[in-house]
């Protein structure tokens, strides 16, 4: 690791000031991506601003018919939350399969979505459920948040503070983990709220995306066999040593059906 300064402010405003005052400072949440990245010298921040002392950011609370999850809530906390299990069991189930037990004890929802890894699980849930990301300065719709490979709508120095998930009549995630890394080679979240059906795909492209053809078919009939014969266009999907684009397209088609049944 290159050297860096370390700050752990107790007020969100101080976090924002430190990030705004130094464009090479980085925010530290659970550190499960950032610390390995620093160890490989793939990043060289001047300072880490640790969010862990800011009060209230780990809270999970009921709001309307949905649930608001603090940015610093760990995957283990979300997976074990009776509130999340009650409102959106599919979201708790997603959190319970991120990484491994040790990673889930440290990694946070805010850190995961701000990092926007193309193979991360949470982005599929945020987009399919039409979640709302709250930051220190505004609310951002889930569909507008992920803008590309490791890119989000966050401005420099903007800090995610919580994510609101509305309740849904159906919310389920299915993924095909890489046998070695356990990252999603593809993951599909299917959500239905009233007549609105959303199918969000992670791991298969440079960033999470909605699969329009599947949404249209499921809006007519919400059943796995409504997807018979429908496979996403492989053009633009990821190809690597683990799976080429055509294979990933097939996996997505299978996972979408699993996320409905």
């Amino acid at each position: 690791m290159y050297g860096f300064d370390y700050h752990r402010p107790a007020a969100l405003s101080d976090v924002v000031d430190l990030l705004t005052g130094d464009e090479d400072a980085k925010l530290l949440a659970g550190g499960q991506t950032l610390i390995p990245t620093l160890k490989q010298r793939l990043a060289m921040p001047t300072a880490l601003v640790d969010l862990s002392a800011v009060p209230g950011l780990r809270d999970i609370v009921a709001e309307g018919d949905g649930v608001r999850i603090g940015a610093m809530a760990t995957h283990a906390t979300v997976a074990g939350s009776a509130l999340v299990r009650g409102v959106l069991p599919g979201l708790a189930d997603l959190a319970s399969h991120i990484g491994d037990a040790q990673v889930r004890n440290r990694g946070t929802i805010g850190g995961s979505i701000a990092n926007a890894d193309p193979a991360a699980d949470y982005p599929a849930a945020l987009v399919a459920l039409d979640a709302v990301i709250r930051t220190d300065r505004r609310d951002i719709p889930g569909g507008d948040f992920f803008t590309g490979l490791f890119e989000t709508a966050l401005a420099p120095g903007e800090v995610v503070t919580s994510v609101f998930f509305p309740a849904a009549t159906h919310a389920r995630y299915a993924k095909f983990p890489n046998p070695a890394s356990r990252y999603a080679m593809a993951g599909v979240f299917v959500a239905r709220r009233g007549d609105d059906v959303r199918v969000a795909v992670t791991g298969a492209g440079p960033s999470v995306f909605r699969w329009d053809a599947a949404e249209a078919a499921l809006s007519v009939r919400f059943s796995a066999d409504a997807l018979d014969g429908i496979v996403p266009d492989a053009d633009g999907l990821n190809s690597d040593m683990h799976a080429d684009a055509d294979y990933r397209a097939q996996i997505v088609a299978v996972l979408a059906r699993r996320a409905i049944a």
């Binding site: 752990r8 390995p36 040790q102 990673v103 440290r106």
Partner: peptide, 10 residues
């Protein structure tokens, strides 16, 4: 936790 992925300051 994996202690190689946690800073001592944390």
């Amino acid at each position: 936790v994996k202690s190689c992925a946690v800073l001592a300051v944390q």
